[in-house]
Write a protein that binds this DNA or RNA. Structure first.
Length: 481
RNA sequence: GGUGGCGUAGCCAAGCGGCCUAAGGCGGGAGUCUGCAAAACUCCUAUUUCGCCGGUUCAAAUCCGGCCGCCACCUCCA
């Protein structure tokens, strides 16, 4: 299996640190605002990666952090705005009863998990919160000070980038380039403009923690180093995030982690998802293109359809969405859902017939794996899925498929579309309730005596009760309205 | 200013030197099936064509150069 690595800018063979086991850290959400589709494109990529690794037989340890410290918008304290404070104000404006930053975080963490579940994510093994790990961060900062990789100025601690020769290798922002760039603010406390804060003492910050350097708060980057190493060890197989994290966040993480442990590489595969565009531009609140998952659900798109849309474009491809993208996804999911029901019907009916689907399944899975093994080529893999769907439908139309054969096709469909992609809706267990089935039987009787008027009336009545009945060769087929 | 990416049918999107007379989805058209509807299936919907212009090669959507257009990162951001 081959995956792209931002650090080397190449697609490389995945070679687990520990055979059979993959340790993945996903940069998770900041929880002082509602997560939006863009965030979830990245998270959905992380979830699919985990699912595919499991499908390929790896035991995966997946950690996703929740950033609940309200970092300042700038390293330089003076002009900084506390994000948590903004979140608090925003929620109060909406009439939500919150009194402190922890409650703000709780509120948005709950929202995040709701959206995550709606999109059928597997649970990461842990969702560590930054505020629960301040002592771990302090220990890491202390280690960096002891090794001379960081320095203290009053109550502030900065990382000394000049002590880390590899700084800039991930992003290409070498120290020379940063120095030349006019966009870095001058902070007289820093020895080098690219030095970044590990700890800040500032009485105005909302969230305050005790430290050897005074009461203050941790720098943004240190939390991920501390939490990933705490739960996954000093070296990880894969670390994911959005492309914006490459610099400065992940660049700084590498510097901190490797300087602290003396082990390199901190991460074997850095994987970054590209940002999405809405209607050709960055999502923007003022343009009304800042959609949350909840917004899309409210517009009538199912979690499965949203997931299909988010997952069906390669993660390193900049993707442009409009509402039509979600309509397309909805239709594609419906088609696969239809096949799923059809197969379940044949599988449950216990019919004998040809076993021809077996080889079709094997061929499809083989091709699917070949595409996915190549840095998660989902478009190619999806092509395989849809070709498979067409071939199976064709066989079903011939009416000669055995139950065993249908079962095999069912397994393939579920493996690919549910286990890996996670967008196949579950077939509602038992079908319609007895009263609906009774109406259906009346309708069949009406049809038998060619009373189309009554038959259509019953179909409308069934429809009004939330079910759709379709006539097929195998008898009536039931769907949720 | 620095760095990186993209430009394939109405839309989305694979392919990255010959199996391309270019996957797959959505949309559209015609048909099969059906009392009707729905679903499904079949066929059609890029045929000197893959932004444009040159070049390399026996061979290019795929490599090289130039141009045009779009985007991202370099600053909080997935």
């Amino acid at each position: 299996m081959r995956l792209h690595n931002t650090y080397t800018k190449a697609v490389e063979e995945l070679a687990p640190i520990e055979p059979g086991r993959i340790r993945v850290y996903n940069c998770g959400p900041t929880v002082y605002d509602s997560p939006h589709v863009g965030n979830f494109r990245t998270f959905a990529f992380g979830d699919m990666l985990r699912r595919y690794l499991e499908y390929r037989g790896f035991q995966v340890a997946q950690i996703m952090n929740l950033t609940d410290v309200g970092h300042l918008t700038q390293d330089h304290v003076e002009a900084g705005v506390d994000k948590m404070e903004e979140g608090l104000r925003r929620l109060r404006e909406q009439g939500v009863n919150v009194s402190n930053p922890y409650e703000v975080a709780d509120y948005f963490i709950k929202e995040f998990h709701e959206a995550r579940r709606a999109l059928n994510f597997r649970d990461a093994h842990r969702f560590p919160r930054a505020t629960d790990h301040v002592p771990d961060m302090i220990r890491l900062i202390q280690a960096l000070l002891e090794k001379g990789a960081a320095y203290r100025v009053g109550g502030n601690v900065y990382y000394d980038v000049t002590k880390f020769p590899a700084y800039g290798r991930l992003s290409g922002n070498t120290l020379e380039q940063i120095k030349a760039g006019a966009r870095i603010e001058i902070n007289p406390e820093k020895r080098h403009p690219a030095d970044f804060a590990l700890w800040k003492t500032d009485p105005r910050h909302l969230m305050q923690f005790d430290s050897p350097w005074g009461r203050g708060f941790p720098g943004w980057h240190i939390e991920c180093s501390a939490m990933s190493m705490k739960y996954l060890g000093e070296q990880l197989d894969i670390h994911t995030g959005g492309e914006d994290n490459i610099f400065p966040h992940h660049e700084c993480e590498i510097a901190q982690s490797e300087a602290a442990t003396g082990k390199a590489p901190f991460v074997k595969h850095w994987m970054h998802a590209r940002h999405l565009l809405w209607d050709g531009k960055k999502m923007s609140k003022s343009e009304g293109t800042f959609f949350t998952i909840e917004d899309l659900l409210r517009k009538g798109y199912s979690g499965h359809a949203i997931r299909y849309a988010l997952v069906s474009t390669h993660y390193r491809q900049q993707v442009n969405y409009t509402l039509k993208s979600f309509d397309d996804a909805k239709a594609a999911v419906a088609r696969l859902d239809e096949l799923n029901r059809r197969l379940q019907g044949v599988y449950g009916a216990g019919v004998s017939g040809s076993e021809t689907l077996q080889s079709l399944c094997e061929a499809a899975e083989k091709k699917f794996v070949a595409f996915m093994d190549d840095d998660l080529n989902v478009s190619g893999a999806l092509g395989v899925v849809h070709e498979f769907a067409r071939d199976v439908n064709k066989a079903l139309d011939d009416g000669s498929v055995s139950s065993a054969s249908a079962g095999a096709a069912l397994k393939t469909l579920v493996d690919l579309c549910d286990s890996v992609f996670g967008f196949l809706p579950p077939v509602a267990g038992s079908g319609p309730p007895p009263d609906i089935l009774e109406l259906g039987r009346s309708r069949q009787e009406a049809r038998a005596r060619r009373d189309w008027k009554e038959s259509d009336r019953l179909r409308d009545e069934i429809r009004a009760k939330g079910w759709i009945v379709e006539d097929t060769k195998e008898g009536p087929k039931w769907k949720r309205g």
